[in-house]
Design a protein around this nucleic acid. Structure first.
Lengths: 329, 329
DNA sequence: CCTTGACAAGTAACCGGTTTCACAGCAAGG
DNA sequence: CCTTGCTGTGAAACCGGTTACTTGTCAAGG
């Protein structure tokens, strides 16, 4: 059963070289003569040697692991992002370790610290925690990437998607369709994205057009449960914080016998894979997860290689008009 | 910036004890006198000492990390499972490290090995790889849990959900509604779940009822793209491999002007969160992710504590009848 | 011919903990 | 008073690699 682990020393002995040489052969950095390289590789193969990742980490000080802290894995928005990053990271020989804070503000610091303890850096997706927590995490001396949140004070690198512009465009789209009474279904209050989207809605100063905010929360359940309050406003178009809320709302409206977009138009945000497959297909704002994921990883990799932190990448995107919006009756 | 790391020796020196004592205080296992414990904890606090996770792992041989290999993170089925396991594991002080094989059979061995290298064990969700790969992974001497796949030869522990019974019940449900010509939309051919579900369909020997299999693949895109072939059969009910395929199919049928369940009834499998929010709400089989996740973690934790592998937990479940099934016209 | 430099390979310190083993101190038992 | 046994503590080996430093070799340059 517990076959003694084959270590670098066994290989060294078997190949008739020093452990340093074996290490060098596997590191591929320093030069080792053709012959010795062959002897080492041969011995390693014969003995079935595999480097001990943990020992490598301790000795080299690098774990080749990066932590990812997600507010909620149950949101397709995040796993699309994670999936992309997983692959980008894999290509560079890095592994991602994921923790889910379950929308709990209180859990973020501890989880973050714990992740940092086992990794070379931390990627925080849509963190809601206070900046003092971010500062403390940054104090560990390891790279920290922040996604979907603008941090000015601390010199943290970040990747952002311009939420304001497309949200405004989306709102204008409904106005151009002829809607005059809009409702904005708010998401998690502390999230930067929510703030940006709501800011876009507020910025919409068109004569004769009113925007009513309704607090929801960002989940499908929240969306469905908002149906009553939405109907009470007598609005003809609802712009939801994200796709999940929009999908929930549509289901809720259907239950009330209200048709979308016949009676009320509804929009989302994120363009999660499902948005294309709902009926009616959802008008939303496309969030380029591939780009965000790639940009995030590239910047993280840069930080790991010693880049100076503080860079900010701002990506842009546009609304996607599908079938859930139509002129009012 | 790079403040010298505070090690156990600093703490020991500052508290006037040996490193062994400090280690013992933090391990909480061996007994250390009240007084020394207090001195050590005080010194640790003063110096801001945090144990070095990697060093602990190397020295103790345990990483307190468990790897999870997922065929496709983009499937809500899996992340619901993962999310549950994340929390169960967290409670026991374990962290999960996730890799996504992206439905690629070829990637499974390498990813699995890599995960095992940094962890104390491996949880494989719906693995499609050959049993020789599983055997090789098991040969590392670390616990392996297999979910959603029946392995007889190797003595691996597994958690299974009885797919056969509820699938059969679901099919019977459509038959009882009056459907005579059923289509079964197949998922990933190599998956155990697919085999079980298809076995259930084939077992349905009711006079006058035919079952036509159509190969799809398990994603929403696959479902939508199957609409043509489904319509060509002239069937009145389609049982899809899973919810994703069903949702895709419904969207595809809608595009063809076919209404669900008016013209054709459609069912899914898994009861992903979205299933409740589609219109029509999806008739499906509920998959108890909380139970599966909890059972999986509990068994994994058991293995980590030295339980003998080979146990098999079989969970059961039932169909959930919603609005996507109705009597044929 | 001797120095200098480049380079291959080895030696051993080190990463930061855990754990075995030895030892000191003390109480109980004979 | 001398074993015996137990408990709390320390010294040091160890986990399995990496890497700074040293040594030895050989070719080029003066």
């Amino acid at each position: 059963m517990s076959t003694e682990r084959v270590t670098i020393r066994h290989v060294a002995h078997s190949a008739g070289v020093s452990v340093a040489t074996v290490s060098r052969v596997f590191a591929q950095s320093s030069s080792v003569s053709e012959e010795l390289t062959a002897r080492v590789l041969d011995a390693a193969r014969r003995l079935g040697y595999t480097p001990h990742a943990v020992a490598q980490s301790l000795a080299s000080g690098r774990t080749r692991v990066v932590g990812v802290l997600v507010p909620n894995l149950a949101n397709p928005y995040f796993y699309a992002l994670i999936k992309n990053m997983l692959h980008e990271a894999d290509r560079d020989g890095y592994r991602l370790i994921v923790a889910d804070s379950d929308e709990s503000l209180a859990a973020e610091p501890a989880l973050g610290m714990s992740l940092l303890g086992r990794s070379d850096g931390l990627i925080m997706l849509s963190p809601r925690c206070g900046s003092e927590v971010l500062k403390e995490l940054g104090g560990q001396g390891k790279p920290i990437m922040v996604v979907n949140r603008q941090i000015d004070e601390l010199g943290l690198s970040s990747v952002l998607l311009d939420n304001f512009t497309p949200m405004r465009q989306l709102a204008m789209h409904t106005v151009e369709l002829g809607h005059r009474h809009l409702v904005y279904l708010q998401g998690p209050v502390r999230s930067w994205q929510e703030k940006e989207r709501w800011r876009a809605m507020r910025s919409l100063r068109v004569p004769g057009v009113t925007v009513t905010p309704i607090r929801a929360g960002g989940t499908m359940e929240n969306g469905r449960d908002s149906a009553d309050r939405v109907l009470a406003t007598g609005c003809t178009a609802v712009l939801a914080h994200n796709d999940l809320t929009a999908i929930g709302l549509i289901a809720g409206l259907n239950e009330h016998g209200v048709s979308v977009p016949g009676d009320i138009s509804v929009t989302g945000f994120d363009d999660i894979p499902f948005a294309r497959f709902t009926s009616p297909a959802l008008t939303t704002v496309h969030s380029p997860q591939e780009d965000i994921g790639r940009a995030t990883w590239r910047m993280t990799a840069g930080l790991l290689h010693g880049d100076r932190p503080g860079a900010r990448t701002m990506l842009t995107t546009q609304p996607v008009i599908r079938a859930s919006t139509a002129p009012p009756k």
